[in-house]
Design a protein around this nucleic acid. Structure first.
Lengths: 238, 238
DNA sequence: CGAACGTTTGATCTGTCTCAAAGGTGGTGG
DNA sequence: CCACCACCTTTGAGACAGATCAAACGTTCG
């Protein structure tokens, strides 16, 4: 149990999230502190990992947002998923693993090497759960793109982000910072920025949300979820 | 090394694939044979796993096709990915894992419990690679739905299936069996069956492929890949 | 032979895209 | 403190890819 009763330095959204996935023990705490010694900052728009290149070191995202992205030869761009504090980056466990997607910083971010976890330990469990949730988010993204209309896509994604950020304690009064432009949102949702703009206006008119650059507030997350049939990702009991 | 020089009973597309991912040793071979003792058949359209329910036992798909699918409250359906012989089903390693998607049999299939693999063994590596490829396929699906048009989506998916089936040796003369209707294809590609039909006709007219119920042949896979900018999933060196 | 299932066709409609330009807003330097 | 620039957001008009609805046509198989 590290949450709260530990020196200030290790309190962070990233740790709040990992602690929410599994009750971390002393060993986990030590591994985290050790890894965080090697924290490094990466500027917005810089790549953290490149598709097709070997993964030299899996990372833990400590602060800021990143995204997995794929670029088509003709310039089309598709964001595959967003990575938030506490998310693992490039954690796969076979030798000479290649990154299956590029990971780019959506804001200035801090990352550290992924703390080592012995099989069977709480931290190891937290990683497994994190990976399972990641997969759940990819499936949600597929469903969004394949079968939801523009309006639903936007609400569904914002609800996902709302739920994920709630896990690491950075949602306040149903609002949260989101370092995305309407253009990046569009490239995540398979839409154009013009259409995203119009749909956001409509959502505001209907009172579903408030938007200003870098920040959204959902008026009534539960109600919105009901309205569009959104269900949260669940990967283990309770 | 099991490929080929082993009793007939253990030659199968599923094993060919696993052997292609990592050079399997005697231990792997024995684990596979043991697990296959408990092979069970599942009828087309039956569920192999249900979203939100605990995964009692991870499975190995031995023959036939399955698919991960998500159903929306109003009846919309989205196929998330297809599972082919040699693919793992529900292999995640945290306690009380819940299935993040329903898995349904697209044809009559055979499955067995996932053979046990010790960390560090070839079979374990094969599983890790298989999971990484699975993730790659999900990312490909996201890109298809988000940024490709109808024509490209169809070609891209067929190319993926072509490449995956090549891995387990069931492609002959650039053709392969595919137990999908135009309707199921549509639900995988985020289109309507009517539109899939028209785009398939166009592809045939352009000489890209031949289609008959349950079977496709790609005239020139490499050329088609070039034409639409398709790239195969790669997760490790070589 | 009939029923079930999958494919094909036609006509019309609409959600989203495209292109193009104007309006806001925040930050930086003079 | 103002002027300017870069970056977002907003607006309008028109075009098009793909949806919708409805019906007919083939096959396969019991």
């Amino acid at each position: 149990m590290i949450r709260g009763q530990v020196r200030g330095e290790v309190r962070s959204p990233a740790l709040t999230r990992l602690g929410a996935l599994a009750s971390l023990d002393q060993a986990a705490h030590e591994a985290l502190v050790a890894a965080m010694e090697e924290t490094r900052s990466v500027r917005v728009r810089r790549d953290l990992m490149t598709e097709g290149r070997e993964i030299l070191q899996p990372l833990l995202l400590l602060s800021g947002w990143a995204a997995r992205v794929r670029l088509l030869p003709d310039g089309r761009r598709q964001f595959l998923s967003f990575l938030l504090p506490g998310d693992l980056i490039g954690a796969c466990d076979h030798p000479h693993a290649l990154a299956v997607s590029t990971v780019v910083a959506m804001s200035d971010v801090q990352v550290c090497p992924l703390p080592h976890a012995e099989p069977g330990t709480p931290l190891h469990v937290a990683y497994a759960i994190s990976r399972a949730m990641d997969e759940g988010h990819l499936l949600a993204q597929i469903t969004r793109l394949g079968r939801l209309n523009a309006q639903e896509r936007i609400s569904d994604l914002l609800l996902e982000l709302y739920e994920r950020l709630t896990l690491n304690g950075t949602v306040h009064g149903n609002g949260f910072d989101l370092p995305l432009t309407q253009e990046t949102l569009a490239d995540a949702l398979g839409l154009t920025s013009v259409h995203v703009n119009r749909m956001l206006q409509q959502a505001r008119r209907e009172g579903d949300l408030q938007w200003r650059v870098g920040h959204v507030r959902l008026t009534d997350p539960a109600g919105l979820a009901r309205k569009i049939g959104h269900v949260a990702v669940r990967v283990s009991e309770r």
